[in-house]
């Protein structure tokens, strides 16, 4: 059985957590991701930027109640990469198709 290489961008705990959260919602703001992942602000910001640069996540910066607000959503490319990643780890675990 040949194992497909895991997407290095998604094979990281925090980035995978961010993408998994975004899979189930239309969009989520920075504070929501911060609360759910329990990451530090700095690390979360860095990982979101990496996902954004790869085209996996779309980031929208707006103002909410006069405060800056960062809203993230999963792009079509990000969703495709996530699906491929899930398929690949299922193969690793022997629960998916090769």
């Amino acid at each position: 059985m040949a194992f497909a290489p895991l997407d290095p961008l998604l094979h990281n705990q925090l980035r995978l957590a961010i993408v998994s959260l975004l899979v189930g919602v239309d969009s989520a703001d920075f504070n929501f991701l911060l609360e759910k992942t329990s990451a530090t602000r700095g690390n979360l910001s860095v990982q979101i930027t990496k996902l954004k640069d790869a085209g996996y996540v779309t980031v929208k910066k707006t103002f909410k109640d006069n405060y800056p607000n960062t809203s993230c959503s999963l792009s079509a490319k990000g969703l495709k990469a996530f699906e491929a990643y899930v398929k690949a780890i299922k193969v690793y675990l022997g629960t998916g198709e090769d």
Partner: peptide
């Protein structure tokens, strides 16, 4: 949150996060 994940840890993390997002209504 930077160490290498095993496939089963990855799957568990995905399930947990998706379930967390679902509760956010």
């Amino acid at each position: 949150m930077e160490r290498e994940l095993t496939p089963s840890e990855s799957l568990k993390l995905i399930e947990t996060m998706i379930s967390q997002a679902k509760q956010s209504f």
